[in-house]
């Protein structure tokens, strides 16, 4: 007798984004994402992939179209966007950790302030999460005393502390030194295998091939092509071929 839930947790339809300066960043982008699915978005810089990702938690507003997150419309004026954001975690290219808080403080802040959890509960959960991303030893360090890879793992733990249903990753490894990329990708892989719904903008083709359920290619604000990774990398789409030729 369970309630029938929509398989599709994210439904973006004909999303258009035009900046005030006239730049047409997104053109009629439509994408449905199922629960537990890992979708990787690739494309050249300026293709609108980050912009699209940021519309999914309304860090970017959209000009036209609709976005539904778990059946809640983001364009509806009555929607409390803060409630939606509680369920959509985001990890940024430049980490954006709060520099005045320790690693644990970063993870605890939102559960205490937004979810009104007790300090003790948030502390316990925060420690658990930091252990999960392999930072049990560094909980009391300030971000400035952590390496890039460690900072990004704290940022993932911080997003997970809100117990989101969806995780958005905006080029999470692009600002990292090469030797630190692996540790962050490992955390993301384990998250994917735990069944988290993930939308990842990345240049890591290996990650796309290995972890993604679906790979999406964007160019010039358009969603050009989407396919399972096996078929994606075998595709003979000329625009994709040109891009892959440049990055691989």
């Amino acid at each position: 007798m369970t309630k029938q839930v929509d398989e599709r947790i994210i439904r973006a339809e004909n999303v258009d984004k035009i900046y005030p300066n006239g730049c047409h960043a997104l053109k009629q982008v439509s994408l449905d994402i199922k629960r537990g699915e890992v979708v990787v978005i690739i494309g050249p810089s300026g293709s609108g992939k980050s912009t699209f990702l940021r519309t999914l938690n309304q860090l970017e507003t959209i000009s036209e179209g609709t976005i539904l997150i778990d059946d809640v419309s983001l364009t509806d004026k009555k929607t409390n966007i803060n409630k939606v954001r509680e369920e959509v975690g985001m990890v940024f290219q430049s980490f954006n950790l709060f520099p005045h808080k320790t690693a644990l403080g970063n993870v605890m802040l939102s559960p205490i302030k937004v979810l009104k959890k007790s300090k003790k509960e948030a502390d316990n959960e925060g420690r658990e999460l930091l252990k999960r991303v392999g930072l049990a030893e560094r909980m009391n360090n300030y971000p400035s005393h952590l390496s890039g890879g460690q900072q990004q793992r704290v940022a993932i733990a911080r997003a997970l502390a809100m117990m989101p249903k969806i995780m958005l990753f905006d080029e999470p490894t692009s600002a990292l030194d090469p030797e630190m990329v692996g540790e962050v990708l490992d955390v993301m892989k384990s998250l994917a295998s735990d069944g988290m719904t993930m939308v990842v903008v990345t240049h890591e083709m290996g990650f796309a091939r290995e972890v993604a359920d679906r790979v999406v290619f964007m160019e010039d604000g358009e969603l050009v092509f989407e396919e399972s990774p096996e078929r994606f990398f075998e595709s003979d789409n000329p625009r994709l071929q040109r891009f892959l030729g440049q990055v691989l």
Binding site: L59, R85, E86, V88, N96, F98, K113, A159, M162
Partner: peptide, 17 residues
């Protein structure tokens, strides 16, 4: 950095929080 505000908002905090 504006990223600080974005990170805070993406965690569900409202503007005042």
């Amino acid at each position: 950095h504006p990223g600080q505000m974005e990170a805070a908002r993406s965690l569900g905090m409202n503007y005042v929080q």
